[in-house]
């Protein structure tokens, strides 16, 4: 059987769980990555502190692909600046485009996000736009050179699950790029559900970071993602009104008649 992989920016990935690195004490991040076995780990960029508890890069195994995000950007030019900073740090060309102007629900600004994709692609970045799951906009992102589409399942950090399921389904069916559900997944079963739909991967941070035992939850998500992918590959059975699984003939009689 062929390897079950997906490609981004010419690189192959087999783990369909992408982990965020936010909200952890640094040493726990290492445990979470070891337990969840992602190929890709996301990061953010902020003003540097002097001293402090160390650098996040020292707690992520070097074989992982780093996916910096542009969180904090409110416009396409700000996202481009963050992308350039990330690249200058020598950690590759991958960039998750995240442009948010909505302080209440943290919903992405699709229009600025599209513009940001155009800007970073022009500079050779592998652009992964985090977006509201709008199929028309997803086509435009693809035309602009995005390497994947990252629709949200629910608002960032909400743990509310795949509330956008039907819209994500359309994107999976129509867009010929890897689709990665990013944001909102709160439970392993929701990640499994996303993979059953045919998405290439899911990205999870808060669900793991706020769990009672984050490394154990990372493991649980890894298992759920594998189960969902296996279910997708197996071809889901049909849905219907109700149908006996056992034969409807040859019944035995247990009472004397």
């Amino acid at each position: 059987m062929d390897k079950d992989i997906f490609k981004l920016g010419g690189r192959e990935f087999s783990s369909r769980l992408i982990l965020g690195s936010g909200k952890y004490p640094l040493p726990m991040m290492k445990e979470v990555v070891e337990a969840g076995e992602p190929d890709i780990v996301t990061l953010a960029l902020r003003r540097a502190n002097i001293g402090g508890e160390g650098n996040i890069l020292d707690y992520i195994p070097p074989d992982k692909t780093l996916l910096p995000n542009t969180s904090g950007a409110r416009s396409a030019p700000e996202a481009l600046t963050l992308a350039r900073l990330a690249r200058d740090m020598g950690c590759g060309d991958f960039i998750k485009i995240e442009v948010v102007n909505d302080p209440k629900y943290l919903l992405p600004d699709n229009e600025e996000t599209l513009q940001a994709v155009r800007l970073v692609v022009k500079e050779g970045f592998v652009a992964l736009p985090y977006m509201n799951p709008d199929l028309v906009m997803a086509h435009k992102m693809a035309d602009a050179g995005a390497a994947a589409i990252m629709p949200l399942g629910a608002p960032i950090g909400s743990n509310r699950g795949l509330t956008t399921k039907e819209l994500v389904r359309l994107i999976v069916e129509e867009i010929k790029l890897p689709v990665i559900v990013d944001a909102g997944l709160g439970r392993p079963s929701q990640a499994c559900q996303a993979l059953e739909l045919g998405v290439a991967a899911v990205m999870v941070n808060t669900a793991v970071a706020t769990a009672g035992d984050p490394p154990a939850m990372a493991k649980a998500f890894a298992l759920a993602v594998r189960a969902g992918r296996a279910g997708y590959l197996a071809g889901l059975g049909r849905t219907g009104k109700g149908e006996a699984s056992s034969p409807l003939t040859g019944f035995l009689r247990t009472e004397a008649g």
């Binding site: 965020g20 690195s21 936010g22 909200k23 952890y24 640094l26 991040m29 996301t42 990061l43 953010a44 960029l45 902020r46 003003r47 540097a48 502190n49 650098n55 996040i56 890069l57 780093l66 910096p68 995000n69 969180s71 900073l85 990330a86 740090m89 950690c91 960032i156 950090g157 944001a183 990205m203 941070n205 808060t206």
Partner: peptide
């Protein structure tokens, strides 16, 4: 002066 930090 900017550095990587944990983020999603």
């Amino acid at each position: 002066v900017i550095a990587f930090v944990g983020g999603g």
